[in-house]
Amino acid sequence: MNFKKLGISDNIYNVLMKNGINEPTPVQEQSIGLIMNGSDVIAQAATGTGKTLAFLLPIFEQISPNNNFVQGLIISPTRELAIQITEEANKLSQGKDINILAAYGGKDVSSQIKKLKGSIHLVIATPGRLIDHLMRKTVDLSKLNTLVLDEADEMLFMGFKNDIETIMKFMPKKRQMLCFSATMDSQVKKLAYRYMNDPCVVTIQKEEKLTLDNIKQEVVETTDRHKQDTLCSVLNEDNPFMAIIFCRTKVRVDKLEEGLHQRGYNCAKLHSDIQQSKRERIMKSFRNSDIQYLIATDVAARGLDVSGVTHIYNYDIPETVESYVHRIGRTGRAGEEGYTCLFIDPKNQKMLEEIEKTIKMRISKRQLNQ
């Protein structure tokens, strides 16, 4: 199967070739035709399997540049993910003259509003900033054709449910809706069905397994008091090219970043209290490999695609198995090998057992060189 057989036009096909994207991934192969036919789609596939292009390509094909109204809307749970989708969309716009507005917090509202006075065809937004625009009447969704919820499990279930309900009131009843996510439990599906019209379900099971197969997973037993010292011992042994270290809270991120900085590690922190412009600078530096260690909350685990991340360190055990899978999915991408290390103290044993049960494997214990 190639992109032309899926109905992708020559101009956009040429942009894909120029960017080294020659063949559709399974989620693209199964979703694009359904979306082009106008079906509502729920698509579940592991992180790093090409979900972003699976919805962007058909949206680009369906948008008419001659119609000066918002035809496509993509909502993402985090600014970082919105930026990442916008970057992909901007690449595709070389093949079709489509005006894109990225609407997320931290950007100057007035300049966004000014840009909106021109014709905007596609909006990529976080819920809060989009609602702000809708209330100001600076975004009109009344003629919208296609709505995408990216990371739909988080959008529908983890704190954005009310926002989504508010946004839905501003768009036509008759529109196409697409939900894309790495995980999709039955409760989330139930919520999605409320808004969707007889959706087609695309599930790429094997990809999730393949992603985990590329990742070597280990556990280090420690105590909270000695955790920072233990982490440093591991970092000194591994000396990874690029790594993300995940903490449970913003306070824990701040404390760890301060501790590692004092010990001379090349690190930076990322969480939602950091000013947006600074977050963008940090991510740019990290992508350019100028920062070795990114210390982050789970906000960074959602959909961030940074090539070159070789190691993931779970300084704090995540609160859910899904979070664990999302976190470790930052490495071992595109067939590369990855490594993850989980630091646990005795009280985390139950959560570790739950993780092992879900991923159907025992995570081996790592012994440190003393």
Rank of each mutant, 00 (worst) to 15 (best):
S272W: 10
L210A: 08
A243Q: 03
D229N: 14
Y265T: 10
T230G: 05
L212E: 02
C267K: 06
Q228N: 15
F286R: 08
K255N: 07
L210K: 07
G264I: 08
I274R: 03
L260I: 12
R225D: 13
F241M: 03
I291N: 05
A268V: 03
G264P: 02
E237W: 02
Q228P: 02
P240K: 09
A243H: 01
D213N: 15
H271R: 04
G264D: 05
F246T: 08
Q276H: 15
F286D: 05
R287N: 14
N214H: 13
S289D: 13
S285T: 05
R279N: 07
I282V: 15
D290W: 08
K284V: 05
S285Y: 10
I282H: 01
M283G: 03
L270I: 14
Y265N: 06
F241P: 00
C232R: 12
T222I: 09
E218T: 08
C232Q: 12
R281D: 14
Q217S: 04
T222L: 07
L260P: 06
D273T: 11
G264L: 07
S285P: 01
D229E: 14
Q275G: 10
E280A: 13
K216A: 12
T230Q: 05
E258Y: 09
I244W: 00
G259E: 09
L270E: 02
V251I: 10
M242N: 11
S233C: 04
N236G: 04
K250P: 02
M283P: 04
R287E: 13
D213A: 14
D290L: 12
D238V: 08
R281T: 15
D224C: 05
R287F: 07
V220E: 09
T211C: 00
K255A: 11
N236T: 14
E221R: 09
S272H: 12
K216F: 11
S277Y: 13
L260Y: 07
L256Q: 06
Y265S: 07
I245K: 01
R252L: 02
R263W: 03
E221I: 09
H271W: 06
V219N: 01
D238F: 07
R263H: 05
E280R: 06
E280V: 12
L235S: 04
C267L: 04
N266I: 11
K250G: 01
C232W: 02
D238I: 09
T211S: 11
R225L: 15
S272C: 11
T230S: 11
R252Q: 13
K284S: 12
Q228G: 09
F286Q: 04
R287A: 13
E218V: 07
E257G: 02
D229L: 14
Q262I: 07
S272R: 14
D254G: 04
N288C: 11
A243R: 00
N214S: 11
S277W: 07
E208I: 06
E258K: 13
M242F: 02
C247D: 02
H261K: 10
V234E: 03
E237V: 10
Q276M: 12
S272G: 15
E208Q: 09
F241D: 06
K255G: 00
R279S: 06
K209I: 15
Q275T: 03
S272A: 15
F286Y: 08
R252W: 00
M283W: 08
E258T: 03
Q292N: 11
I291Q: 07
R263S: 04
D224G: 12
S285I: 01
G264W: 10
E280F: 02
D238S: 06
R281H: 14
I282E: 00
I244R: 00
V251M: 05
A268M: 13
S272K: 05
Y293Q: 01
E221P: 00
